[in-house]
Write a protein that binds this DNA or RNA. Structure first.
Lengths: 334, 334
DNA sequence: TTGCACGATGGCAGCGCTGTCAAATATGCC
DNA sequence: GGCATATTTGACAGCGCTGCCATCGTGCAA
């Protein structure tokens, strides 16, 4: 545990050239079993850790990738980080967690600066950075590998890990229809998120598949936040007759709906059913616990990291979503 | 925006030695204004970004510090990251966000490995990593600078950014006492967090200052989670007569209390007042919105990063807390 | 026996910067 | 004007590794 032993000390003690130590550290072949064991023993004993900076500088690869994010949800960011971090460290890569401002005009140049400074081997993009076409183009131009988590635009291009937002939203809506609801409000999220429109699409498809006319007045605009969900809910609940169910595009907005229901003494789920989307921490912290569509956020990030670092992986993976039926949905009244 | 111009190209084009370019990049003095301008112009034009790895290897400093965390709360982690990141990037440092397992027997050696590999200039510790004495000792031994955010143990030693947990808990309790509550339950958090005991201490002091006897039966053990808060609340509410207020050691547990109250048809705040601690995102997402003690998480992390990187800062700073009175507290019944 | 492929190792340049020292030039003061 | 001192610049080693090539030894077919 003493301070910074060098590779040369190791080689001296092990009685081999420092090049051989390097081979052992990098798991190269052409090292005899016995030599390898001896070197490893010395490395462990001295607690030797190779300098990342030196490897980066000398080698072709830095063993560093970055996860770029710009999402206001702590829950989402936290779990994306964990998933990506896990796969990276399993494969011996360092992951740089890099918040960015996807709306900044300097986005592309900031990311390029990071890539150059850190000699990145690749980047992982999470929504909404996934949609920044200018960035994708520049990454392509430079030939820098990247994966996207839940991309909306240019879905088929390159590597990506996704869920089927359309199908998931369809299932949510069908759950409500099966409970007898016919007048179902929908609160959509931020315009800039492609998933917003896909979820709306799924909602629409389910209605139509069950012979319920799509009514534009039942769609309210939200901004993914608690308050925007509440505001949208107030608008929807003004209608006569009022909808018996509301499907919110994410859990934060659903929590907003729930608060408005409490405020207005609307019983949930007796008079109003509510469904969210994400299954964030919030879903189990509100009362009653929220029925919501589980999105496997960690697993998406894990899969994305794997796509980028495991050479033989299929370039696109789609993960399963799952409806979590809890206590905010029930049979339609009357 | 093309790929990796080198410092030598820059120097050739600017017509100076590459050492001079290095001086400009590092903002050293002894460079004439005219030369500086010329070099900067070329740097900007070529979009040159110095290699971090090379600087680290050649220089004494890496301009890299790490933030170590091991906290189950996405909210907390998210905001700590933002605060620390902000100050680091303002000062030209890269911040490595590093989750660790503070319970692992390898904690110390894992952290030392990180320090060696990345040539860290320092580390920022957040709770509960702040309490790992073995780690602190080893950092001291190696002379590696570190700051702690909200440390419990060895408070006075070294650099730290904190709030006054005892005073904050006292204020929370006093708020309830002023509302007429005399039977106030307290749900404490994880035993391993020092703040748990400080908050209990503040609760106790306030009671005693107002001539209310401290009753051990009114203290329930929680584990900082939503469910543990609910369990503790059920126990407290069994008592006859039952407490008219509950002070939970954090917002997650307070949300659990709130859910139990809803479940048992106990009106909040009519029959039961509830206060949390943290002012996390949750506080405004539950219904009714939670009265809670605001902890300036971001600012703490910002201040911590500043302590470590700004050479002349006072080694200890204490930031202000603030009681956020929302809708879960009201006058005591009867 | 010779020849040759291949496994195991070592030697050395060089990645792109910073630190140190020395040299060249400018400035100040008696 | 002359010398001391400060400012500006350059030369060069070397940080700790990897990539490439050379070298040595061994087993095996001819």
């Amino acid at each position: 545990m003493s301070s910074r032993p060098t590779i040369k000390e190791v080689s001296k003690i092990a009685g081999v050239s420092f090049k051989t130590v390097s081979r052992v550290l990098n798991n190269e072949k052409h090292v005899s079993e016995e030599t390898r064991r001896r070197v490893e023993e010395v490395v462990a004993r001295l607690n030797f850790r190779p300098s990342h900076a030196a490897r980066t500088l000398a080698g072709r690869r830095s063993f560093q990738v970055a996860l770029l994010y710009d999402n206001p949800s702590p829950y989402y960011v936290y779990h994306i980080q964990i998933g990506a971090q896990k796969r990276c460290s399993e494969l011996g890569y360092r992951l740089l967690l890099q918040p960015v401002d996807s709306q900044s005009p300097d986005l592309v140049s900031n990311v390029m600066a990071l890539i150059d400074e850190a000699h990145l081997d690749g980047v992982i993009l999470s929504p909404p950075v996934t949609e920044m076409i200018g960035l994708l183009d520049e990454l392509d131009r430079r030939g820098l590998p990247y994966v996207r988590i839940a991309p909306g635009a240019r879905k088929e291009a390159g590597m990506a890990a996704t869920i089927d937002d359309v199908a998931a939203a369809r299932e949510v809506t069908e759950h409500l229809i099966e409970l007898g609801h016919r007048s179902i409000g929908f609160i959509r999220g931020l315009e800039s998120h492609v998933s917003t429109w896909e979820r709306l699409q799924g909602y629409r498809e389910a209605l139509e598949a069950h012979g319920i006319a799509f009514d534009e007045d039942l769609v309210a605009a939200g901004e993914n936040s608690f308050t925007s969900g509440g505001d949208a809910a107030r608008k929807l609940l003004e209608r006569q007759p009022r909808p018996t169910a509301i499907f919110a595009g994410n859990d934060d907005m659903a929590a907003g709906v729930l608060a408005v229901a409490h405020e207005s003494d609307v019983d949930v789920p007796g008079q109003l059913s509510i469904v969210g989307f994400d299954d964030s921490d919030l879903a189990k912290a509100v009362w009653p616990p929220l029925t919501t569509m589980r999105q496997p956020v960690r697993e998406l990030a894990y899969a994305a990291a794997n796509l980028m670092l495991a050479p033989d992986a299929e370039p696109q993976v789609m993960l399963e979503h799952k409806l979590m039926v809890r206590a905010t949905t029930g049979p339609a009244p009357r």
